[in-house]
Amino acid sequence: MTESITTQKYKAFSVIRIWTLAANTVTQLLRMRILAFLTVFSLIAIAAGFSFPTMSPEQQLKLLKDVSFGSLQIFSIVIAIAATSILIPKDLEDRTLYTILSKPVPRYEYLIGKLLGVLLLIGGGLLIMDLILSAVIWIKQSLIITGQIAALKQEQSATPENVAAIKMIIGKYGLTWGVHAGVFAVFLKASVIAALSLLISSFASSTLFTIVVAFAFTIIGHGQQLLRDWFLHDTLSSGFGKIISGLVVIICPDLKLFDVVDKVITGEIISAVTLASMGGMATLYIVGYTATAYLFFVDKEL
């Protein structure tokens, strides 16, 4: 009787099991002090925010955003690759993997849970960094506007028209919704890289191999657009070259699709529809890579 109840209750796909695995992964990564980078980021943002006061106001704000977004991207890519690469080998080493898989946990749930844990960690980290960055930009922007208006008053030219112009020009380079959209784009890129690393990790023999190959694919992924144009449109190249570029185009994600940060920094607006399209593309990559990772992992001798 009890046995039949247990059988009835068992689900082939359980969100609760995945969530438990994800939460466990977050704890596991937090214990590795991965988020210590947040302190480093705060220091970088503050240093970039209040250095170079002799530059033009727009350049000061642009530099602050450039340095901060650069740090955000490096943080997210490094964590996405490193954290995902070490998860399966670490679980093997600690023998946690055997404990988990000896229970009625399907291998795909294990993979999804692990990936979700990494994405939660990256998402949480980026959210905190977004808040820090927004605060620093806002403070910097307010200081610059106050200074500029004071200068105008000194020159007796603080007309409402001039003050509005100053606020508009500086505001464009300051804190806008675009900053958050940029952080979201960074998150999407990191998520795709994490899924790709999970795929490599599912068949790799060592952590180092996964990290090196994932970094290589990340670099190639940023140039995938060039290869795709060449693969699809160039008619003069040799057959062998075409095959190689075709393979890269098939396997690699186009990471340039998430590179809208440059435009965000100069105050360009990104529409919700564009962000949704980018999100959809990232989801396609993540689902595709995770499904392929499962097909490799399901056959893996543990």
Partner: peptide
């Protein structure tokens, strides 16, 4: 399957981002 579905989508999104001047 991924290749067949992702190539046209990648091309379409690239074109959209270029049209909106979000992609250099």
């Amino acid at each position: 399957a991924i290749c067949l579905s992702k190539l046209p989508l990648e091309n379409s999104l690239t074109a959209t981002l270029r049209r909106q001047k979000l992609l250099d």
